[in-house]
Design a protein around this nucleic acid. Structure first.
Length: 572
RNA sequence: GCGCCCGUAGCUCAGCUGGAUAGAGCAUCAGUUUCCGGAACUGAGGGUCACAGGUUCGAAUCCUGUCGGGCGUACCA
């Protein structure tokens, strides 16, 4: 495991706490100074402990200071203000740490010694419906979480739980037959299916006869009628290929696409078992799980309708069991919007009582709203198709590229526009706190200025460009880093934080922290680039050191963007 | 009614397991190019952190209450 001065300090201070303040409140042990005047790192434990121990904070601080006196990686340490202890690291240690990180294929990211099997459930579009902007967050966020967990060494299973079974198929099949089973052209099949649903839905509205016919078609499908099953399969296959083209453009992959229909065989046994065990009971004609927990007391979990039909909850329970039994999952992660929080509380609580032993997490995100501040709805108005959003992103990127790089060949420009456009879209979503709602806005989602993907991509391009230019030097693996100027010191310390930052992101599943970090890296690199001559450095040693700094910055940027699911370019 | 989320600069947002003078981007204004890629860099203005109490050496951050907004709350997913 790579050890940076900051990690060494953390251990040193933690040791002191364990020996002297076992009863001290747990919290952050050390943290980077927010003002460089104070030093590199600071510890506030003395002040926090003073309250508990009823001693003077500065007395406690001086004991800590004494403990740290011997450490060979500390240049200076001092008590300041009410009891802060500020540390400055030895330059040589920072330089050595840079070399270590640069030689580490994981760039300081901690690899789990005991990897877990983690299922990430995300995206989940519905068959026969266009993917719209509402799917973007689950898809991008879920993909990002899966990438980060994979990088940490976990065994990750990506599962797309598509909505391929439900009451809408009655109307769809009815309409499809009524229109004489038309051919679906490959590219427009989703639009046609959606149209089919809408016209049939309208026709059924207030028409009891047609409504009943739709119900009959659904019943036949569920009973395994061959003709209806074939129509259903056609719908599903065509939908899947439309989804696949979106996923391909987004570079999102799944290990499984086990939709709701897959769990049909287990629905009945799920309800039976829960009822037999006394977990579910009958109430108002339906089968329901009641909870003891205060926060769930008034919210029964409906697992079978009074007409005997299964529900979302039933499928989710069967799915959860399947993932644990068949895949030996240790942890299950569900990436959906925040409106489903209650559902997942109920689901997890029920699963626990059922004896299903896995750590379950609901990673939820806020809604994307329309201009009226109401969630974008699919029924009324014009939902924005995800496909169109991707097109627009690429087109806008292409327009800017044509302006800035008129020399590029058309195919090359389009390829670059794809990376920039899609990357910007992803970055816009991931860089915001996932719990927040936001109003859909083309300009915001497709911004190319400021804290955006192009800024990071450009920083990366500059790291590569200068390395190419310095072609006389090929091997930087044994370079001794030299940190003389403030900008190279700041950049290096930022780069050394990469591992612990990824650690934090994994803990909280908040990719926006990674975005903020990478933005800082890019910003510091640009400043370093402006203020520290590389190719014209005073000495050859310094030149090599700075080239190595460019290389390391590039590695961290590329790796970090990779965790976000954003590709890099060698030029732009 | 109850539960969850949110309220920080003109706009969009960071910062929230308490820490030193509340930070970015956009927009506005003023600069930088004989120099490694100007999609860059440097600087300026802009704040009652919704409001009111409380906890303490210290509160945007924790607690209580109020106001405002969003979502959820048994047969949709």
């Amino acid at each position: 495991m790579t050890v940076t001065p900051a990690q060494q300090l953390t251990r040193l201070v933690q040791d002191w706490i364990d020996q002297n303040l076992p009863e001290a409140p747990s919290g952050s042990v050390v943290q980077p100074c927010n003002d460089p005047r104070f030093g590199h790192y600071q510890s506030n434990v003395a002040m926090a402990a003073a309250k508990v121990l009823k001693k003077k904070p500065r007395e406690i601080a001086s004991s800590l200071l004494e403990h740290c006196q011997e450490a060979d990686f500390i240049e200076t340490s001092e008590i300041a203000g009410p009891g802060f202890v500020n540390f400055t690291f030895k330059q040589a240690c920072l330089e050595a740490a840079c070399a270590t990180i640069a030689g580490d294929p994981h760039l300081g990211i901690r690899i789990e010694k005991h990897p877990r099997t983690i299922v990430v459930d995300f995206s989940a579009p519905n068959v026969a419906k266009e993917m719209h902007v509402g799917h973007i967050r689950s898809t991008i966020l879920g993909d990002c979480i899966a990438r980060i967990l994979t990088a940490r060494g976990h065994h990750v299973i990506r599962d797309n739980h598509i909505g391929d079974w439900g009451t809408q198929f009655g109307k769809l099949i009815l309409g499809y037959k009524a229109q004489g089973k038309p051919e679906f052209p490959e590219s427009e099949s989703l639009a046609m299916m959606q149209q089919l649903y809408q016209t049939t839905h309208q026709a059924c509205e207030g028409n009891a006869q047609k409504m009943d016919a739709a119900r009959q078609e659904l019943k036949k499908l569920q009973a395994g009628n061959k003709e209806n099953l074939e129509i259903w399969k056609l719908f599903r296959d065509r939908s899947q290929s439309a989804f696949d083209s979106v996923y391909q453009r987004l570079s999102v992959k799944f290990d499984h696409t086990l939709g709701e229909s897959f769990y049909n065989p287990w629905l009945k046994s799920t309800v039976d078992e829960l009822t037999q065990r006394g977990i579910a009971t009958e109430s108002e004609g339906a089968k329901v799980v009641f909870f003891q927990e205060e926060e769930l007391k008034e919210h029964p979990f409906l697992i079978e309708k009074s007409d005997g039909a299964a529900l979302y909850a039933t499928t989710d329970l069967a799915t959860l069991k399947y993932r644990i039994d068949e895949w030996q999952a240790d942890e299950l992660i569900y990436v959906t919007d925040g409106r489903q929080q209650l559902h997942f509380q109920q689901l997890f609580s029920t699963a626990k009582r059922w004896g299903l032993d896995a750590e379950c997490r609901h990673i939820w995100f806020g809604a994307i709203l329309g201009e009226n501040k109401k969630p974008l709805k699919t029924r009324e108005g014009n939902p924005i198709r995800l496909k169109d959003l991707l097109d627009e992103a690429e087109q806008r990127a292409l327009a800017i590229l044509r302006e800035k790089r008129a020399d590029l060949a058309d195919s090359k420009a389009r390829q670059m526009a794809r990376v920039i456009g899609i990357g910007s879209l992803k970055y816009a979503d991931l860089s915001q706190n996932r719990n927040l709602d936001y109003v859909f806005d083309w300009d915001k989602l497709l911004a190319f200025d400021g804290n955006t993907a192009p800024y990071l991509l450009n920083a990366y391009v500059r790291t590569q460009s200068i390395l190419k230019k310095a072609d006389t030097i090929t091997d930087l693996s044994n370079v001794r880093f030299q940190l003389h100027l403030p900008h190279e010191q700041m950049l290096s310390r930022q780069l050394l934080e990469y591992g612990s930052l990824v650690d934090q992101v994994t803990k909280e599943y908040r990719p926006h922290l990674l975005c903020g970090y990478l933005y800082e890296v890019a910003s510091m690199f640009h400043k370093f680039f402006e203020h520290c001559p590389v190719l014209k450095a005073e000495t050859d040693d310094l030149k090599e050191s700075r080239l190595a700094m460019c290389q390391l910055s590039g590695k961290v940027l590329k790796h970090g963007l990779g965790l976000l699911g954003i590709e890099t370019l060698e030029q732009m």
